[in-house]
């Protein structure tokens, strides 16, 4: 689901969701950029935060309580980009990185590809 769909489903404003992500209370969307995607796990996490708030917990108090669930969510749902540099080399890069980090890694892959490939072709993304 999109951020606006997550907002509608949870009743939590978008700015607050970004605030929670920045504080590490929930993971970011599955993909960066236009296709940013949120899952039912994000919705569940927001409901859990609301529930803990209703119990009187502060955000800083609930962070350690939420951490295991956050890690599990990331492992289960994170998307990866595959760069096949040849029959014998495949590189995987997380798809939800920020654009500057994606550019940095892409440049490194290009450099790596040039070194290992004799045909002079760049890497192909699957």
């Amino acid at each position: 689901m999109t951020l606006s769909e997550l907002v509608e489903a949870s009743g939590v404003p978008a700015r607050t969701i970004r605030f929670y992500i920045s504080r590490g209370l929930m993971s970011g969307p599955l993909k960066a950029g236009r296709g940013a995607e949120y899952t039912p796990a994000h919705l569940e996490r927001l409901e859990r935060i609301k529930s803990l708030q209703a119990e009187g917990r502060t955000l800083s108090e609930m962070a350690p309580l939420l951490e295991p669930a956050a890690a599990a969510t990331e492992t289960a749902s994170v998307a990866w980009r595959h760069y096949a540099l040849g029959d014998d080399v495949v590189i995987q890069v997380r798809a939800d990185l920020s654009p500057w980090r994606t550019r940095q890694i892409r440049a490194a892959i290009d450099e790596f590809a040039r070194r290992i490939q004799t045909s002079g072709q760049g890497p192909e993304e699957e």
Binding site: R18, F19, I21, S22, G28, A32, G33, R34, G35, S98
Partner: peptide, 9 residues
């Protein structure tokens, strides 16, 4: 860049 998620400060 559409969709970029800013960090809250």
């Amino acid at each position: 860049r559409p969709g970029e998620l800013p960090e809250t400060r």
